[in-house]
């Protein structure tokens, strides 16, 4: 069976829908994983071991196991406890939790890396604990974390393909549907790969802009 890429336009619609779902899935998971990353980082910096330890244990478990396995746990686990969420929601939860753990490691080390003197100086200038955090520590930490978080977000886009295994009709599963209709895997995986590549280029550009913007606080 030779290759015939002229078949692709007939399935442009399904691939386009899949692309939109992949974008929605990725953007939602990015937002939640960044918010979750901040929450986990703050909890892990807590003075109380009872808060610190469970979070550290969860982070250790999620950093040491494959995303695919976490996806199975969340999708089938939620069904088992009676929460019959649809696959898209389960996919967003799994991607968000997985990347929140990685983000929190980056955020935590960035907060710790800001010189302690900065905090003390802000405090002795009369800023409150909260103000010192917001005006002195956070802007510097943001400049430090942006490149690493950017890399995580780029990884998230690519890993989002995994949620196709629990039946989310994103780009990868859309390609599979087109394949089961046309019996042309090569052409459609090349097409899906090309779309991911373009999305990836766009995201890389966005990350570069964010890096430049945040660098001014350094």
């Amino acid at each position: 069976m030779g290759l015939d890429f002229s078949i692709l336009p007939a399935y442009a619609d399904i691939l386009w829908q899949g692309t939109l779902w992949t974008i929605a899935l990725t953007v939602l998971s990015m937002v939640f994983s960044l918010a979750g990353g901040v929450v986990f980082a703050v909890l892990q910096l807590s003075r109380h071991a009872i808060i610190r330890w469970p979070v550290a244990g969860f982070a250790w478990l999620f950093m040491g196991t494959p995303l695919l396995l976490q996806l199975f746990l969340i999708y089938f686990g939620l069904v088992q406890i009676g929460l019959d969420l649809n696959a898209f929601v389960a996919g967003v939860i799994a991607l968000s939790l997985h990347f929140a753990v990685y983000n929190s490691e980056i955020i935590r080390s960035a907060i710790v890396a800001v010189d302690k003197g900065q905090y003390e100086a802000a405090r002795s200038l009369g800023l409150s604990q909260f103000q010192a955090m917001r005006k002195a520590i956070v802007p510097q930490a943001v400049a430090n974390v942006t490149p690493a978080l950017g890399n995580m977000m780029i990884a998230l886009l690519k890993e989002s393909a995994l949620v196709s295994v629990i039946g989310v009709m994103e780009l990868t599963l859309s390609a599979q549907r087109a394949i089961s209709d046309s019996f042309r895997p090569f052409e459609f995986y090349i097409a899906a790969g090309a779309i991911y590549y373009v999305l990836n280029l766009g995201l890389e550009q966005a990350v570069r802009v964010a890096e430049r913007r945040s660098a001014q606080y350094r």
Partner: peptide, 22 residues
């Protein structure tokens, strides 16, 4: 650029399911 810019899952499917075509 290509292999870091696309999902590993797609690369795997291309090789395993698309490979026989070539």
């Amino acid at each position: 650029s290509v292999f870091r810019g696309t999902p590993a899952l797609i690369q795997l499917f291309l090789l395993y399911f698309g490979g026989p075509q070539i």
